[in-house]
Design a protein around this nucleic acid. Structure first.
Lengths: 275, 275
DNA sequence: CCTACCGATCGGTAGG
DNA sequence: CCTACCGATCGGTAGG
């Protein structure tokens, strides 16, 4: 899957993941249809990822996947014991592939590079992981997380944590240099939010390419000059817009259960215009 | 729905949305079970939103929703002509409610407030919209967008565009003041990415409350002092980490279709350790 | 808004 | 990996 190669002859079945071992296809026997090894399994993963990304996990039928792979409706269950196992396999392979490319990029970077440039490389690589054609695995992972059985979430979470280690390092350095508007941990969560959110609104056509998007994301979250440390901390005093919002909600809202609120607040009056 | 009230006696059926008008419940006749008006319809919307958020649109059955509302399995279709119509109603009402609270907040703000503080109020209000209990509508809108029939997307898009107008204004001012690391349009998309992404990772327990999250988001994306306009533009020269990443992918990747790539690149060698 | 129901589909399996 | 199939469920409807 993805754009990242695996070693030749390295059957996917021998990977570290105990969660989804197929029946061991007895390679080398029978008719060597495609390649004899896990090619069909791989084709199922690729087709499933494509469908899951477009229509969602629940809306995709195992028959869709089978048909896209040229199989009969029952055949996917020869390779995967359930539809959910197929989803987990997609996520695991997506993260492994992303990790491979990220490691390769980091290894190719000069040693004396700044933390900002290192983060730039991580960001661009991540955009490639998300956006390059055929790379449906990581997007599916993020969007279909709730369809993963809780028992198997931990395995994927470990892969995600490992992937984020270099991000933590780079952002911690940037925080030390005063180049962030928040702390490293929050900046990392926000940065991934920006990057994953780009899948919703970004269209890589025209002038704005992935490379430029990467630059803009970095510029948006990482300053080039240290920020003034003056009032940068948490203002202990009342934050004006904050109290305004809080008060507005206190006036205008109930906790909301079933019935619409009685509506006697002045807020509503200020809203009558649009009705 | 939400925490924002509607005018008393304003049946939801008379709203601007032509997309989902129920059968006009003949209010005032029959047994006045709850309130006589669209209370059941409203209860369906609330219950559906809760389920859609937790389990997803496809995984939620209309029977789930009926049961949560104390109805029989066929009854939701008296109020909504289809499951999809229920989803659209959730999104429309979610946006209308968000717009109401946002308008109220803006109206309550002093006129001489800075663009930064105005944006702070918008951000905090938006976090309330996303996070306060019972407010499942807008999260559902973002997560289940692809389940909306294309014909009805436009209606909701209009509401979303209106909602974003004050954001555009505030961010345009901030861009003029040199407080953004990117342009106003991209900053807006990124900011919403951060805010919506918070639904994945943020837990409003402990020290980090919504108010502080709002501050941190703002600090992360909006400087307090104008940024140095020096090398802030697009560097026309080769961007080092960028070319490294691009080269790495060129070496390591094919476009990817079905079969795993042959893998003869040096990238793979540098990755053998984890196997 | 309930009763009773239908047609279609879906994940999964037995047995080869 | 195919054939043939099952049990369960699901969105939706007729008729009151």
């Amino acid at each position: 899957m993805m754009n990242w190669p695996r070693l030749k002859g390295m059957s996917t079945a021998q990977s570290l993941s105990p969660s989804e071992a197929p029946e061991i296809p007895k390679r080398g026997r029978g008719r060597p249809r495609k390649a004899g090894d896990g090619a069909s399994r791989q084709a199922l993963i690729v087709a499933a990822a494509k469908h899951f990304r477009r229509k969602g996990f629940d809306a995709t039928t195992t028959r869709d996947i089978a048909q896209a792979t040229g199989m009969q409706s029952g055949s996917p269950f020869y390779h995967f014991k359930s539809k959910n196992a197929l989803l987990v396999a997609i996520m695991e392979e997506g993260m492994r592939s992303a990790q491979r490319s990220q490691d390769a990029v980091l290894a190719a970077l000069p040693g004396d590079i700044t933390a900002r440039d290192r983060l730039a490389a991580l960001v661009l690589n991540h955009l490639y992981v998300l956006w390059l054609p055929g790379n449906d695995f990581v997007p599916v992972m993020h969007h279909e997380w709730r369809s993963v059985p809780p028992a198997q979430r931990k395995t994927i979470q470990v892969l995600k944590d490992a992937y984020e280690v270099p991000w933590r390092d780079a952002l911690a350095q940037l925080e030390d240099q005063g180049l962030l508007g928040t702390n490293a941990s929050l900046a990392r969560s926000m940065l991934f939010g920006v990057l994953h959110g780009s899948m919703t609104w970004f269209k890589p056509k025209g002038a704005l390419r992935l490379e430029q998007l990467a630059r803009e994301c970095l510029n948006a979250l990482v300053s080039e000059q240290p920020r003034t440390p003056g009032p940068a901390g948490l203002p202990p005093a009342a934050f004006d817009p904050e109290t305004v919002v809080r008060e507005a909600w206190r006036r205008g809202g109930r906790r909301n259960t079933d019935t619409p609120s009685p509506a006697t607040s002045p807020l509503v009056l200020s809203k009558q215009r649009a009705a």
